[in-house]
């Protein structure tokens, strides 16, 4: 085990490709997840939007619907990658024994885990693009700067996917997945300033939000969906990517501890 990502190599791309092909073969069920951003947008943008018409951003008033739209993209990025690398990976590891099948070939467990994380990032990418389409249809994010959304999605997806894999490495059984999902995942996007500005929260909650990657992702998405490509966008992408490396290294350790007996 040499580098920070163990002995993971090119075969992790074949693991990624396998997951992609399963996704394409089961496209009917995959399509259902496209409907979700539509529901989210209708509920938050149009529903909550009737209660709060405007949000103050840097002294300027922004219509709530336009303000919340990038937050829905952030939610999709986080949820798709975290959920697939948690629930999906657990099913592949435990119930389908796919990891056993793959590690009986020249591919190693490190290849498998890195391939899963790459797939998590891909799920985030797909989620961000479908959500972006919904936003465009409703007249939002119509700016060339929105081209930065996929970049932020891949970087964020790698981070949240790696976090999901860390939990997959330690949960006792399929029911225990509810702990990381509801005690870590859900609060991260509910209190990450996706649906209401963090400025409205007390100081301690703002401090927590400042350490929440979903919050930074949402802020960067707001900037590029609003037409800006300032340093915040690039620094956030870089920060998410940099943070996912140690997290993925931790996921590798935890999965090795779980599966190499």
């Amino acid at each position: 085990m040499s580098g920070i990502l163990g002995d993971a190599g090119p075969l992790s791309l074949q693991v990624w490709r396998r997951n992609l092909e399963v996704y394409l073969v089961t496209w009917r069920t995959a399509c259902v997840s496209v409907v979700e951003p539509i529901f989210n947008f209708l509920a938050f943008g149009l529903g909550v939007g009737t209660l709060t018409r405007e949000v103050a951003v840097d002294g300027a008033a922004v219509p709530y619907e336009a303000w919340v739209a990038p937050g829905i993209v952030a939610m999709s990025i986080m949820f798709q990658s975290f959920f697939d690398c948690l629930y999906g990976s657990y099913i592949r590891m435990y119930y389908q024994r796919t990891f056993d099948a793959i590690t009986a070939t020249p591919a190693s467990l490190d290849d498998v885990v890195v391939g899963e994380a790459l797939w998590g990032a891909t799920r985030a990418l797909i989620g961000s693009l479908t959500t972006l389409l919904v936003l465009l249809a409703f007249g939002h994010a119509r700016t060339p700067a929105a081209a930065a959304v996929p970049l932020l999605a891949v970087c964020g997806g790698l981070l949240f996917g790696s976090a999901g894999l860390c939990f997959t490495g330690i949960v006792r059984n399929i029911d225990s997945i509810n702990y990381p999902l509801h005690l870590v995942g859900v609060p991260m996007y509910l209190f990450g300033g996706l649906f209401f500005p963090v400025d409205a929260m007390p100081g301690w909650a703002r401090a927590i939000a400042a350490a929440n990657p979903v919050h930074h992702l949402a802020e960067a998405l707001r900037e590029c969906c609003g037409g800006g490509l300032g340093p915040r966008v690039w620094l956030t992408a870089l920060g998410l990517l940099a943070a996912s490396v140690p997290l993925l290294a931790l996921a590798l350790r935890l999965m090795r501890r779980r599966l190499v007996k």
Partner: peptide, 15 residues
């Protein structure tokens, strides 16, 4: 050939 089947349930035989 492992004790428990670990074929890919979403794929066809050939795939």
């Amino acid at each position: 050939v492992p004790q428990l089947d670990n074929l890919d349930p979403d794929f066809s035989v050939l795939r």
